[in-house]
Design a protein around this nucleic acid. Structure first.
Length: 958
RNA sequence: AGGACUAUAGCUCAGUUGGUUAGAGCGCUACCUUGACAUGGUAGAGGUCGGCAGUUCGAAUCUGCCUAGUCCUACCA
């Protein structure tokens, strides 16, 4: 083995071997365990969120695979409607071509081309992470099977009355010319104005104060063209007399009523609100209550129409009301029209005042365009009914969120769920399976032939398919079962559904998780007809942020690419990567400076295992993770530690030629033979069992941080720091018996082999690499560590006595090292140490462990004190004194200072415990065991203090 | 406006049902190339657990209020 761990050298080949040998496929035996990958955008590329997400899922999958489950990790990609269409449109745009130039079919062909070209990027990147997904089952939300599932789901929901079409207000994106759902709208804080307009009262009415007008306030002046009423609060005394009267809408000269509605806040503004049902969601609701007409004044680009479209509140055309609009606004963009309208009000003396006003502006999460509430025909899923069982499934624990607090978020949203607008005016996506005839009738079916058959439509009837496509999330909502072959009742569906756990970020709980739950409960039933949940657990992880806690974003220039952390990247490449293709090129200089400061040497190559282990160690529940390069460096070092521990073990258990190549195994007890286990052997075996217990518990609780920490501590602090050192006195003892050597070699090999299996789900590559060499020595056979059994704690191997003995030994050695360190005695110097104490156990332990002690504390002798104690530096281990004679070694003042430090510490402790025990309330109320513990603590501390004081006095008297 | 979460060593984080002398890694100090490892070893320094009250014999841990930060939902035209 190389002297230093080099992730590149070992990570290169394993993945390919694993994949080619089919190790990622379900084994076909054992209980099913299934995870569906959250499908990344097909044209996307890997980011830290994927890295984190995959580290967790692969840990779970590998863990369960090793535990003998029939594991399926289902991969696939999402077609990501808007996002993908945008990318391709932008590419075409660069060549001066629009999608309309190409036409629908040609444009879709272009997208497929782009998908073929770039679709492999993300999947290959996922391979680099070591994710053991079953690529033979890879699916795409637009492939034939999933498209069938989408059609089937749509048709059935329509049959069940849960999908309907209607003319309603939707969130309209005037840039992309499509409707989007509520969830795709982001409300951004902005500074705006509140314009106060005078609306003249009609019919010579006056207010109670004698004014001939009332004042309305608005943030959106341009919509006044579509006002169909003014509302006041029903109990507002100021306007009682005016309710039912009319105002004349300026500019338009439309006569509109004053209505009373308790939506109005009397305290805000003047207490009068203009009502524009066709351009505001709240006004739309008011309109419904008062049967107001909907007056649409904007076109699809959000420019003003020449003539308003007037509808009744039920969406039918209203031919009574005159939709004439002032012609000087026709064709003006909404924001241009706004300025002009304000100016015209001002000219007419109708602008009361303009206030500054903070408001939330709705913007499309993809386009960034200001969203316009707009009246269109769209398809909806009625969500209320679907939500009911989805709420119950979480309430009754069929689905559990980890951490649990996300259930509240889920409930809050589900209990107030709005119908889901699923139609999109895009080209890339699943086309809505609905057809129209010339008379405007709508037919829903799986295809045109079915529609004709079911509705007795002859060939003479022209049918036209709906141009719209479905929201991407509609197909994602079917992901857990469509990927398993639904609507066919496949074996895979029967076996792997419900899946076990969904691993995802909180940001898509509503977009995806909630909708999956609703759809799955509706469509997938057990044999007895009861609904199946899509997954039993939802593990919700936090966002990966930069080391300062900031969200990673291109515009901030703080994005880390997981592959750069794995492979490393030089500074210049990193800088150019971070400043390339910027939306705001003016930020480039700042980003460059910041990058050069943070990574003056670029980024070193840390390897996949270190990256994954870092993610796991940071994955405590319920918080975002700040990605800390320091932690990752520490875990890269941990890999190196494992690497070198393995080198040591192999060196001592293999016969090697001069180049360090194995030429045969030493006797590690794999073929039987007499064995003698040392204290250290029994101890490390015992500690291994406890570590296995900890990992088991942590995995059951999704505590990847605790699992990885337990492994880290065992391997580094126990196996490497102590056990390997304790093995040396045995292995290098010329008098050691074959049985002793065999026992220690066997323990070295077997404990490490088990630790590798324990760590494999978290660091797959290095564990496989080492395991291949170690396994034969440990008496294990098999092609890959992936398919070995996960280590299970054997409680009979827990050895309390050995643990206590080693604690004593460690305490003694640390005590001597402490004296060395504080007294500046060279570590190279062999010293004589004496032991003294009343306890026969101590003496027995000394005799039994003299060999260990001498080696690890670098002693020339270790003797039990006989006769008078010489002047010595002293450490206490329990009741035993460890004496390092001072002659020629110890500085008097230094030793006094050292003792004083100890005495101070003990004094503080004694005072504290005495206080406790002096409090009768404590003694009377606390459990007996707690009191007894305190008493022992006090006695021990007092005893120790007295001994040290005695020692202090003795030295001070010199 | 409602709700959630977070606040522990200079930094990144653990701390299980209240009872520890409050821990780890990085960083820092001193010493050390001893036959796995300087991506290392040994020994240290460093915290009144955001603040204030309360419950309790006992609070980092439970309750309330406050402060700071992050986020979600809904929004007043």
């Amino acid at each position: 083995m190389e002297k230093t761990y080099n992730p590149h050298a070992i990570e290169r080949t394993w993945y390919q071997k694993w994949e080619q040998n089919g190790y990622f496929k379900p084994s076909g035996s054992g209980d099913p365990y299934c995870i569906m990958i959250p499908p990344p955008n097909v044209t996307g590329s890997l980011h830290m969120g994927h890295g984190f997400n995959n580290a967790i899922m692969d840990s779970l999958i590998r863990y369960h695979r090793m535990k003998g489950h029939n594991t399926l990790w289902q991969p696939g990609c999402d077609h990501a409607g808007i996002a993908t269409q945008m990318v391709v449109e932008r590419q075409l745009g660069a060549q001066g071509v629009s999608r309309h130039d190409l036409g629908r079919d040609a444009f879709i062909d272009k997208i497929w081309e782009w998908k073929e070209e770039s679709g492999g990027t993300i999947t290959n990147q996922i391979r680099r992470l070591g994710s053991s997904v079953d690529w033979t089952r890879e699916r795409f939300t637009m492939d034939d099977g999933l498209s069938e599932a989408v059609k089937e789901a749509f048709v059935r929901l329509h049959q069940d009355g849960l999908i309907y079409r209607g003319k309603r207000l939707v969130n309209w994106d005037p840039k992309f010319h499509t409707a989007i759902s509520d969830l795709e709208v982001e409300n951004i804080d902005e500074k705006g104005n509140l314009w106060h307009f005078r609306y003249p009262l009609a019919d010579g009415e006056t207010t109670s104060e004698g004014a001939d007008h009332i004042i309305v306030a608005t943030t959106r002046p341009e919509t006044m063209l579509g006002d169909s009423a003014v509302a006041v609060h029903p109990e507002d005394e100021r306007y009682q007399a005016l309710i039912g009267k009319f105002v004349t809408l300026p500019l338009v000269n439309r006569r509109i009523p004053i209505v009373a509605d308790d939506y109005v806040d009397r305290e805000f503004g003047t207490g009068c609100v203009k009502i524009t049902p066709a351009h505001d969601f709240n006004d739309y609701e008011v309109g419904k209550r008062h049967n107001l007409p909907l007056i649409n004044v904007l076109d699809r680009d959000a420019a003003v129409l020449a003539q308003a479209e007037v509808f009744n509140i039920d969406g039918t055309h209203n031919s009574e009301l005159d939709g004439s609009l002032p012609q000087n606004y026709a064709g003006l963009d909404r924001f241009v029209a706004r300025k002009q309208i304000v100016a015209e009000f001002d000219q007419l003396g109708l602008l009361e005042k303009v206030d500054d006003h903070a408001l939330k502006v709705p913007k499309g999460d993809r386009s960034g365009a200001v969203i316009e509430p707009w009246l269109t025909d769209q398809w909806y899923v009625s969500a209320k009914e679907l939500a009911k069982p989805a709420i119950e499934a979480v309430e009754n624990g069929d689905i559990q969120f980890v951490p649990k607090q996300y259930e509240n978020m889920y409930f809050a949203w589900m209990r107030d769920i709005q119908d889901w607008c699923i139609s999109r005016q895009l080209w890339w996506g699943h086309r809505i399976p609905a057809w129209y005839d010339d008379a405007g009738n709508v037919y829903v079916g799986r295809d045109e032939a079915e529609v004709r058959r079911d509705n007795n439509l002859g060939d003479d009837v022209a049918l036209r398919q709906d141009d719209d496509v479905l929201d991407t999330w509609f197909s994602s909502a079917l992901w857990t079962f469509s990927t398993l072959g639904w609507p066919e009742n496949t074996d895979a569906l029967k076996h792997f559904h419900s899946t076990d756990v969904l691993v995802t970020g909180f940001d898509i709980i509503f977009f995806w998780v909630a909708r999956m739950i609703m759809m799955t409960l509706h469509f997938i039933k057990n044999d007895d007809g009861t609904p199946q949940v899509p997954f039993k657990y939802v593990y919700v992880h936090g966002l990966v942020r930069d080391s300062h806690g900031h969200k990673m974003s291109k515009s901030k220039g703080n994005v880390l690419d997981p592959l750069d952390l794995i492979d490393g990247i030089d500074l210049e490449s990193l800088v150019s990567k971070r400043t390339a293709n910027m939306m705001q090129p003016q930020l480039a200089a700042k980003i460059e400076k910041q990058t050069r400061k943070e990574f003056p040497e670029g980024i070193a190559s840390y390897g996949t295992d270190a990256l994954r282990f870092t993610f796991c160690s940071l994955a405590s529940t319920g918080r975002d993770i700040k990605f800390d390069m320091g932690r990752m460096e520490g875990y890269r070092n941990f890999c190196n530690k494992i690497w070198n521990a393995a080198r040591y073990v192999l060196m001592n258990t293999e016969q090697q030629d001069d180049n360090g190549n194995a030429i045969g195994a030493l006797d590690c007890g794999q073929n039987g033979g007499e064995l003698e286990l040392s204290l250290a052997d029994r101890w490390i075996i015992s500690r291994l069992q406890r570590t296995e217990q900890q990992v088991e518990k942590a995995m059951a609780e999704f505590r990847f941080d605790l699992a990885s920490q337990a492994i880290f501590e065992f391997v580094w602090n126990e196996y490497c720091d102590w056990y390997l050192e304790l093995s040396k006195p045995v292995l290098w003892d010329e008098n050691a018996t074959e049985a002793q050597l065999r026992g220690t070699r066997r323990t070295l090999v077997r404990v490490l082999e088990a630790a590798l299996r324990l760590a494999h789900p978290f660091m797959p590559y290095i564990t496989e690499e080492i395991w291949q060499r170690l396994a034969p020595l440990a008496g294990k056979s098999g092609d890959t560590i992936m398919q070995q059994a996960f280590p299970l704690a054997d409680l009979s191997k827990i050895d309390e006595q050995a643990e206590a003995d080693i604690e004593w030994l460690k305490g003694t050695i640390v005590g001597i090292r402490n004296i060395r360190g504080e007294m500046n005695i060279s570590p190279a110097k062999h010293i004589d140490v004496l032991f003294n104490g009343p306890n026969a156990d101590d003496q027995a332990r000394l005799d039994a462990n003299r060999q260990f002690l001498t080696k690890l504390a670098n002693l020339s002798s270790a003797q039990w004190l006989e006769g008078e104690a010489p002047l010595a530096a002293t450490q206490l281990v329990g009741e035993m004194e460890v004496l390092v004679p001072m002659a020629g070694l110890i500085d008097k003042d230094a030793e006094l200072a050292r003792l004083q430090k100890e005495l101070d510490k003990l004094g503080k402790l004694i005072k504290q415990v005495e206080g406790k025990l002096g409090n009768s309330k404590f003694v009377d109320n606390a459990p007996e065991a707690v009191v007894a513990k305190e008493r022992t603590k006090l006695e021990d501390a007092k005893g120790a203090s007295a001994k040290l004081q005695e020692q202090y006095d003795k030295i001070a008297a010199l």
